[in-house]
Simulated scan of single mutants.
Amino acid sequence: MTYLSPIVVGLVYAVLMSLLREPHRRRFNAVMVAGAGAAYLSGGGFGGWEFPVTALITYVAYRGLESWTFIGLAWLLHTAWDLVHHFKGNPIMPFYHGSSMACAVCDPVIALWCFRGGPSLIALVRDRGRRPRAAGRGAS
């Protein structure tokens, strides 16, 4: 459950983001990852190091306003920072010790979706149902 739930959260995130049309979906996701990059600022445990990491993620997210690749990269940078916090024992949510690890599992799921261009998963499922099926094996 420790790893399955965050994967499901990442998939649900992608489905919910699919409700937004482009280019709003890409831009909204750039803002979301910039916010995620600042999540540790209020007590992340690495003192002044929280600022340059936040600045880096914010810059990459800014580049994501026009590029899904940069949004995916920003999610992976956040994943790396989640892992650093997890191994230091300073989780993103102090009341849930495994929260940084959960975030580190969830974020790459979102990053993979971003690297695919942030497609509407709803449209993919809907279009798959409309496609004519190819003839099965052994069909004449």
Rank of each mutant, 00 (worst) to 15 (best):
Met1Phe: 13
Tyr3Ala: 02
Tyr3Pro: 02
Leu4Arg: 09
Ser5Met: 14
Ser5Glu: 12
Pro6His: 04
Pro6Leu: 03
Ile7Phe: 09
Val12Phe: 05
Val12Met: 05
Val12Arg: 01
Tyr13Ala: 10
Tyr13Arg: 02
Val15Ala: 09
Leu16Gly: 00
Met17Phe: 03
Met17Gln: 14
Met17Asn: 14
Leu20Pro: 02
Leu20Asp: 04
Arg21Cys: 09
Glu22Arg: 00
Pro23Glu: 14
Pro23Ala: 12
Arg25Leu: 12
Arg25Tyr: 06
Arg26Glu: 00
Arg26Thr: 04
Arg27Lys: 10
Arg27Thr: 01
Arg27His: 01
Arg27Asp: 01
Phe28Asn: 06
Asn29Leu: 05
Asn29Pro: 04
Asn29Val: 11
Ala30Lys: 08
Met32Trp: 10
Met32Ala: 07
Val33Cys: 07
Val33Tyr: 04
Val33Ala: 10
Ala34Cys: 09
Ala34Glu: 04
Gly35Arg: 06
Ala36Met: 05
Gly37Ile: 02
Ala38Asp: 01
Ala39Lys: 05
Tyr40Asp: 04
Tyr40Arg: 13
Tyr40His: 10
Leu41Pro: 03
Ser42Ile: 11
Gly44Met: 07
Gly45Gln: 07
Phe46Val: 14
Gly47Leu: 14
Gly48Pro: 13
Phe51Cys: 12
Pro52Arg: 09
Pro52Asp: 09
Pro52Thr: 12
Pro52Tyr: 09
Val53Thr: 06
Val53Arg: 15
Thr54Lys: 02
Ala55Ser: 08
Ala55Met: 05
Leu56Lys: 11
Ile57Phe: 13
Thr58Asp: 01
Tyr59Gln: 07
Tyr59Cys: 11
Tyr59Trp: 04
Ala61Lys: 13
Ala61Ile: 01
Tyr62Ile: 00
Gly64Ala: 02
Leu65Gly: 09
Leu65Asn: 04
Glu66Ile: 10
Glu66Trp: 13
Trp68Leu: 06
Trp68Lys: 00
Trp68Ser: 00
Phe70Ala: 10
Phe70Leu: 10
Phe70Arg: 07
Phe70Val: 03
Gly72His: 06
Gly72Asn: 06
Leu73His: 05
Leu73Glu: 08
Ala74Asn: 11
Leu76Arg: 00
Leu76Lys: 00
Leu76Ile: 13
Thr79Leu: 03
Ala80Val: 12
Ala80Gly: 06
Asp82Thr: 09
Leu83Thr: 11
Leu83His: 10
Val84Leu: 14
Val84Trp: 15
His85Tyr: 07
His86Cys: 05
His86Ser: 03
His86Leu: 05
Phe87Ala: 02
Lys88Phe: 04
Pro91Asp: 00
Met93Arg: 03
Met93His: 02
Met93Asp: 12
Pro94His: 13
Pro94Trp: 12
Tyr96Asn: 02
Gly98Glu: 05
Ser99Cys: 02
Ser99Ala: 03
Ser100Phe: 08
Ala102Asp: 08
Ala104Tyr: 00
Cys106Glu: 01
Asp107Ile: 03
Pro108Leu: 03
Ile110Arg: 03
Ala111Trp: 02
Leu112Lys: 09
Cys114Lys: 09
Arg116Ile: 07
Arg116Ala: 15
Gly117Ala: 11
Gly118Ala: 08
Gly118Phe: 07
Ser120Cys: 04
Ile122Met: 08
Ile122Asn: 05
Arg126Met: 08
Asp127Gly: 08
Arg128Tyr: 14
Arg128Cys: 11
Gly129Leu: 15
Arg130His: 13
Arg130Phe: 09
Arg130Lys: 15
Pro132Asn: 13
Ala134Trp: 07
Ala134His: 06
Ala135Arg: 15
Gly136Gln: 14
Gly138Phe: 14
Ser140Asp: 14
